[in-house]
Simulated assay, not measured.
Amino acid sequence: MNPRTLTAALALAAGSVLLTACGGGAPSGSTAAAGASGTTINTGPDQHRIRGTKDPKAAALLPARVRAAGALRIGVGAESAPPLSFYASDDRTLIGVEEDIATLVADTLGLKPQFDPLSWENLFVGLDSGKLDAVFANVTVTEERKEKYDFATYRLDELAMEAKKGSGWKVHGAKDVAGKTIAVSSGTNQEKILVDWSEQNEKAGREPVGIKYFQKASDTYLALQSGRIDGYFGPNPSVAYHVHTAGQTENAGTFSGGGKSVQGKIAVTTKKDSGLVKAYAAALRKVIDNGRYGKVLARWGLTAEALETSQINPPGLPRTAN
């Protein structure tokens, strides 16, 4: 299924709570959905985003080349993953909490946001090549990534295990996934945690985890409903959104994206020593302090993932031991 049509497909799934907006709800002609915490979310193309205003002190931290360009080239995920980044009901307009936070940062720096939807690996290729100035794509700070990239944090990294509704399965750690077959996205921190759990199980004499990879979210959910997999381990916002909107699955457990060793944090990512990270952090601190950041998270039902301030290159997820 084309990523642009996935949101619509999930919305039409059995038990969907998508509603046509009317009265004082979402704008006429748009749609609304229950978000990660039951919040009503506008999924139409007319978003009426919460906008920022230019902060001269933050803007002064920008490299001259970016100031002169007048635009911020922002990479976002191409795979539809509501409420993080996905296509609106018109199947063309990019919306989500990532676009909203990125827009706030660009506004605060006096720049026009220019979004480029890319696959996970091409987001980093874009940074490496200089095609992108920033990536807003649910990127977790890790010690390994800090070698090549700079980070300014803007949200807690929370993960969740999604299971078929009525499974009764509860996951607290390694032993709860022994012998289970679980889907996960390649190259993610949840994959690292799942691999670590599998290794712990083998060392303890328990069965390892059967790890499966799917190219599309639609394939993952078809496998989950058919019983070919026991669960999907992914970002908590996306899991929560799907649980509430599709009505076919349940949350079997929530975890820090950094595991037990460190609280994982999501950050705007830029090429190391590009000269941009201080400006991003300053802009984020500004919108956190003036309350606009909080309004954006509340809009998408993600208030529980709010940060008190933005940090530059904080302790990240540790390296995986060889």
Score class of each variant (00 low, 15 high):
106 A>S: 14
78 A>V: 05
150 D>N: 09
13 A>K: 03
74 I>S: 01
67 R>H: 05
287 V>M: 06
78 A>G: 01
79 E>C: 00
173 G>M: 05
249 T>S: 11
30 S>D: 15
70 G>W: 12
88 A>N: 11
290 N>H: 02
101 I>P: 13
107 D>T: 11
271 K>D: 02
94 L>M: 14
1 M>K: 08
128 D>C: 00
218 S>N: 02
75 G>K: 10
192 K>Q: 13
32 A>H: 12
175 K>V: 03
44 G>K: 04
303 T>E: 15
176 D>W: 08
143 E>G: 06
92 R>W: 05
35 G>C: 08
141 V>A: 00
202 E>Q: 12
64 A>C: 01
241 Y>G: 00
240 A>W: 01
129 S>M: 07
172 H>C: 01
10 L>E: 15
271 K>N: 01
11 A>G: 15
13 A>P: 11
303 T>W: 11
142 T>G: 03
148 K>P: 04
195 V>F: 09
186 S>Y: 12
54 K>H: 06
157 D>S: 15
272 K>T: 02
74 I>N: 09
56 P>Y: 00
97 V>Q: 13
40 T>G: 07
261 S>H: 04
85 S>R: 09
50 I>Q: 11
49 R>V: 02
201 N>I: 00
289 D>Q: 11
266 I>E: 14
57 K>W: 00
89 S>M: 06
70 G>D: 12
286 K>D: 11
241 Y>P: 12
286 K>V: 08
142 T>W: 05
7 T>C: 03
185 S>N: 07
198 S>K: 10
149 Y>M: 03
67 R>S: 14
188 T>H: 00
118 L>R: 14
81 A>S: 10
253 G>M: 12
4 R>L: 10
230 D>R: 00
211 I>F: 03
5 T>P: 00
72 L>Q: 07
155 R>A: 12
261 S>Y: 02
59 A>S: 09
135 V>P: 11
80 S>Y: 13
303 T>V: 15
85 S>I: 03
270 T>I: 01
257 G>F: 11
118 L>K: 15
211 I>G: 03
171 V>M: 08
144 E>Q: 10
34 A>F: 13
322 N>D: 06
251 N>T: 09
77 G>L: 11
201 N>Y: 04
135 V>S: 07
59 A>M: 02
302 L>W: 07
310 S>K: 06
107 D>S: 05
132 L>K: 04
68 A>Y: 06
103 T>Q: 14
299 R>Q: 14
2 N>L: 03
119 S>W: 10
116 D>M: 13
244 H>C: 01
282 A>P: 12
1 M>T: 06
52 G>A: 04
260 K>V: 10
218 S>D: 07
267 A>H: 05
140 T>W: 00
251 N>S: 10
271 K>Y: 05
93 T>N: 04
43 T>G: 00
96 G>E: 09
82 P>Y: 04
161 M>H: 09
317 L>M: 11
233 F>K: 03
16 S>F: 15
152 A>W: 03
131 K>N: 06
243 V>C: 11
265 K>R: 15
107 D>W: 13
185 S>D: 10
26 A>T: 04
274 S>C: 02
233 F>Q: 03
14 A>Q: 14
131 K>D: 06
